[in-house]
Nucleic acid binder design. Structure first.
Lengths: 331, 331
DNA sequence: TTATCACGTGCAAACGTTTGTGCAAATATA
DNA sequence: TATATTTGCACAAACGTTTGCACGTGATAA
């Protein structure tokens, strides 16, 4: 165990009271400058650091926020966390990271353990597999400030920062339609999560606006992993009937499909979603939708800190941007 | 402020003492089963959660570890954190994340604020710009368990998990040499950080073993960013004298160079380092050295938890693996 | 001379737990 | 029936802070 120097050790060393030390270190006006000088000197000499638990217990706040993401090891989330950490650090807050790993039970467990007191506020992006949101609504009932980003739960009246996902998907789909392509498939993520549903809706809206009838089989729903993208493309190829273009709701699935296409010597225009950093260094640079994840993180963090300070929640929607690269151009 | 239910609220509701509640909830043998039942029921009914600061203050431990990385938004680090979080979660520990952003002053500030009490232990990867390690050695003197990973400070007698960087670089260089290539340049990171220095040494060792005299100008030292890689390649091109191959100490610099080569219609075999996920989806798949970052994170976390439990430190060196792709093959 | 007032400091309560010790009632033993 | 043992709980101290209040000192004003 770490042998700690407490405030009373400093007090004893100077033969003054504990309260004098505390006030001196906080630059309280009713302590003489001479005493402050001595206290600061002695505190430094003894290497005194206040015990943060005692401080937190006393103050009822810990200057810490928690971030819950499905997986930290995805560029979108690590960039968002980067933005969050930036704002947090500027405001003297610490950041705790939790991964739900996209499994509902993990998420429940994390949220429950957070529900009381451990942190001053929570920023979360919900797990793919989450079917209900009782754990979150309970946490909110307890008064915990909560801001969702990207994957939000619209029924909860808390803060949110998200992208206009439908619009991003609409733009990508329209980009195909404008090239005269009509038979466009959509690879969707699990539609119980709003982002995937919105992207599917954006796709459908674009198709409808251009008068294209979408067959149910044109939409495929599965987590957007590289493996799933590859599997999907394999099945399309072995199925024999290929689309003229594919609108993927995620870059990883698009990459998986791209590799299979390369192996099989086929080339179908495709687009991804998220602008993962690898998009423009792929052998076939991938058209994708930029979500400005760092900025999203910064905005979410700022909103949370504002809420902690008593300001009201907001619901921010960021405009996506279609970044066109060669993968989506018909040859 | 959050209105909290405290243990005394539960005690009042049942007209028993606070200590009975505490013991009942901890399944203490001297409390009757009937009482335990009632307490658990009432605690649930009131939604009581123990205040973690009070518990921490009392127990002197907080079941939290801190992770300091240069930048979370790099695959290597987010993967390592993924591994750390996995082990931490399994053992009931929380994880706090701090980014040094590769600036020494940030790192100092973080380490100082952590030095006492805030966490039970620290896992760190030092910043590129760190010139001294007083802040770390102070923290260690205070008794804080510390495990370095990847970017270690060898003078400090603490735990460490790292890759045999020299070997990884040796293998990549040898891969060129075996193809009969001799004029191989090395793009190094800042050599005050041990990983970059080791990689440079590995390169030099391979060259020496194959009897190749390395000119000082063959080694270039700069942070391994995409921009620097591009700039480097530009300068080589405009300098007129091109190498036969380049061994990059980082994937990002290699990608930057690769793009410039493509724009200029040149093709020099190159290798990277880190096996970023984009390596095999590049337009010219990049030969790189796999560092097994998830595993590194897991091992570091396990060592730290062991140390917290009183076991001694270790110094683990992981064997790297050269993953050969097309970028390094001479045409 | 006495009342008034800063000024600088100490005292003690409080934050919500955990835990050693004490004590009464219930049970077992003689 | 009287004594010893167990059982089940309460009391109170402690963890390290912060902070309202009281208090003694010396200076200023009436």
């Amino acid at each position: 165990m770490i042998k700690r120097i407490s405030i009373s050790d400093v007090a004893k060393a100077l033969s003054v009271s504990v309260s004098t030390i505390s006030r001196a270190l906080h630059d309280h006006p009713s302590i003489s400058e001479e005493m402050k000088r001595q206290v600061r000197l002695k505190a430094k000499e003894l290497n005194y650091r206040p015990n943060s638990y005692a401080v937190n217990l006393k103050k009822g706040s810990c200057k810490t926020i928690a971030v819950i993401v499905p997986l930290i090891n995805r560029n979108f989330f690590s960039s968002a966390i980067n933005g969050i950490e930036e704002i947090a650090q500027q405001n003297g807050y610490d950041v705790m990271i939790y991964q739900s790993r996209n499994v509902y039970e993990h998420e429940r467990h994390i949220v429950n353990s957070l529900s009381f007191g451990k942190v001053d506020g929570v920023i979360a992006s919900v797990a793919d597999s989450s079917k209900d949101y009782l754990h979150y609504s309970q946490m909110v009932d307890y008064g915990m400030p909560l801001v969702f980003f990207d994957r939000i739960l619209p029924d909860l009246h808390v803060g949110s920062v998200r992208i206009d996902d439908a619009k991003g998907s609409y733009m990508a789909t329209e980009h195909f339609l404008k090239q005269g392509i009509r038979k466009i498939y959509h690879f969707s993520g699990p539609r119980n999560v709003i982002i995937w549903d919105d992207r599917a809706k954006g796709y459908a809206a674009a198709m409808s606006d251009y008068g294209v009838q979408v067959e149910p089989s044109w939409i495929y729903e599965n987590p957007t992993t590289e493996a799933n993208g590859a599997k999907y493309m394999q099945s399309l190829i072995s199925g024999g009937e290929l689309p003229e273009a594919i609108n993927f709701a995620g870059d990883y699935a698009a990459v998986g499909a791209m590799k299979v296409m390369k192996e099989n010597g086929i080339s179908i225009p495709i687009s991804g979603y998220a602008c993962e950093p690898f998009c423009d260094v792929l052998f076939n640079p991938l058209t994708s939708v930029d979500q400005f994840s760092d900025d999203m993180g910064r905005k979410a963090a700022q909103m949370l800190l504002d809420k902690i300070d008593g300001k009201p929640y907001n619901n921010i929607v960021i405009e996506p941007k279609l970044v066109i690269r060669s993968s989506s151009i018909r040859r």
